[in-house]
Amino acid sequence: MKHYQHLNKEERFYIWNALRTGSTQKEVAVTLGRHPSTISREIKRNKYARAKIYTYHWALEIVRWRKRRVARTKHRKLNQAKINMIEQLIRHNLSPEQVSGYLKIHHNISISHETIYRYIYSDKARHQSLKPFMRQGAKRRRKG
Rank of each mutant, 00 (worst) to 15 (best):
V70C: 03
Q98Y: 08
S122L: 01
N108T: 15
L130P: 02
E10Q: 08
Y119N: 03
S122K: 03
Y14C: 04
G22K: 00
N8I: 08
K143P: 01
R64V: 08
H35K: 00
R34N: 03
F133K: 02
F13C: 02
K9H: 07
T31R: 12
N79P: 07
R50A: 14
Y56A: 06
R141Y: 15
T115N: 07
N84V: 12
S37Y: 11
G22L: 01
T115E: 11
K124F: 05
H113T: 10
A51C: 07
S112L: 08
R64A: 11
L32W: 06
K44F: 14
Q128N: 02
I83D: 07
K67L: 05
K44S: 13
V28Y: 01
S95G: 07
M85C: 11
R50N: 14
G144D: 13
Q98K: 10
S40D: 10
A29F: 06
L94C: 08
V99L: 10
Y117N: 10
Q128I: 03
L19F: 01
S95K: 08
H92N: 13
K104P: 12
Q25F: 05
V28P: 01
Y119K: 03
V63A: 11
I83L: 10
R141H: 14
E10P: 00
H113E: 13
F133S: 00
A18F: 06
R12C: 06
L89R: 09
H3A: 11
P36V: 03
E61V: 09
E61W: 11
N17S: 13
A51K: 13
T73W: 05
L94I: 06
E42C: 01
A81P: 05
Y48G: 04
A49G: 04
V28L: 02
E114L: 12
Q128M: 01
Y54D: 00
H106Y: 15
Y14P: 00
A71Y: 06
K77W: 13
S37N: 13
K143L: 04
A18T: 04
K74L: 03
Y121V: 02
G22R: 02
A138N: 15
T115G: 05
